[in-house]
């Protein structure tokens, strides 16, 4: 190996096959990957919805009533249902990736991946139940 790389001054244009923008439909694992990436759009959608709700709450009971009425329109209901599915998909893929991103060791031994994933799901159920209680209690 030479220490310095060798560059050709005028290299010919290398042949590159053009890849279709729809490359991710050719294989199921590619589609799953792109769907996972697209979940971010619905995450942002709910963040914006929360901003909207917050603004309505700040403006008063009347504005908040209008916000609730808007939520009952078919368009927003459909969008919310789709967004809910995508956000769930985000949660599932995120939890399944956790043991790969974060290795947990207990007394020198690596905790099995499925334990880390299961603990995430358990915590998720508890947190969701607490939030539902906090919001719906009378």
């Amino acid at each position: 190996m030479r220490a310095e790389p060798h560059y050709t001054l005028y290299h010919p244009r290398w042949y590159r096959r053009r890849v279709s923008v729809w490359w991710w439909l050719q294989k199921r694992s590619y589609t799953a990957f792109v769907l996972r990436e697209v979940t971010s759009v619905f995450v942002a959608f709910f963040a914006v919805l929360s901003l909207w709700q917050l603004r309505a709450l700040a403006q008063g009971p009347e504005a908040y009533g209008q916000f609730l009425a808007r939520l009952r329109t078919p368009g927003l209901l459909t969008l919310d249902a789709i967004a809910f599915l995508f956000v769930l998909y985000h949660t599932i893929t995120w939890f399944n990736l956790t043991p790969k991103a974060m290795v947990v060791r207990l007394s020198g031994k690596r905790v099995p991946d499925w334990v880390v994933v299961a603990l995430n799901y358990a915590a998720w159920v508890v947190v969701s139940a607490v939030l539902a209680w906090a919001l719906l209690r009378r």
């Binding site: 995450v43 709910f46 949660t91 998720w124 719906l136």
Partner: peptide, 13 residues
């Protein structure tokens, strides 16, 4: 988002 969004979106939306 993974922990908190599903329940909030489900309830509100």
């Amino acid at each position: 988002a993974a922990f908190l969004f599903p329940i909030h979106l489900f309830l509100t939306g």
